[in-house]
Amino acid sequence: MRALVRWHLFWPCLTLALLIALNAVVNPGFLAFEWRDGHLYGNLVDILNRAAPLALVATGMTLVIAARGLDISVGAVVAISAAVAAVMIGGSLSLGDAEAVSRFPMWLAILAALAIALACGLWNGALVVGVGMQPIIATLILMVAGRGVAQLVTGGQIITIYYPPYAYLGNGFLAGLPFAAVLAAAVIALTQLLLSRTPLGLYVRAIGINPVAARIAGIRAKPITLALYGFCGLLAGVAGLIVSSNVRSADANNAGQLLELDAILAVTLGGTALTGGRFSLVGTALGALIIQTLTTTIYSLGVPPEVNLVFKAALIFIVMLLQSPEFRAGIVRLARQPGA
């Protein structure tokens, strides 16, 4: 039992299980699955699908935070990537002619969107590594300017994507499962594999735990940190594609709004220390699922969905205080007081 409680994924797993149990009680059909037209449907499948963009962004964020960084521009990068893809695919609804065409080949549009997202990430990384800015300041710049850039790309319009194949990214099914969820799971699994098969995971942890010692031990932190920011930007780009495909449009103002905050929350919930070093990609994925399940729960409880923010804030406060040594010391002192 003790070992179980100490397991680093115990708390995220427990939280998720409790949330699902709560839903199952309120809504008896919650746990049901249905196999229709060769696709799997159900509330849980839906949660998996909807959590995919957040899980992707949070995966990149996890690695950046693990190496003592932070990227608050991911929401803006999501908007940029969505805008680029939407504008390049474009397409118009021509009545009578059901054959919608894309302006550029879809693969080119996707590659361009991802390339620009990667460039955004590398820009952040260059400011942190090259110029030596604090991560929050460096990424604040793109956070401020990014949405302006996205609006520049879309010309201030909400661009509707009529090209049907593009909808597959966010709404399609692969082997009966939602494609976005499969994609997110694959990315997380591949990242995990990359980190454990190469020494990169070890380097990231060493840089996060003790940057000075890592440097003396001969680890070249600069290229690694740069790559992490680039990767974070790239994954935000993928998330942007999924989001825009899902709603078949790109809204430069609102796509990925507050996503950076949800991503940080998911990372924290998954047991990654905000101070760097210790990290868990699986924990982050669980964190993303918790946030999405919470949203679903609030809908099904009939509470106005906007109140979700207050619940998220409460979660942040709890996790933050539990991570603070001063707070824990205070609790221990309270518990030791005679009569308590």
């Binding site: 020494p199 070890l202 942890r205 735990i209 000075v212 010692a213 890592a214 003396i216 070093g277």
Partner: peptide, 26 residues
Amino acid sequence: TEGVVEDLSIRDNIVLTLQARAGLWR
């Protein structure tokens, strides 16, 4: 402050420099 990487295992700490010399991928 300059040597030990506290949360890593003893083995990882010992091979850290050797590993770092081997590069990013191997």
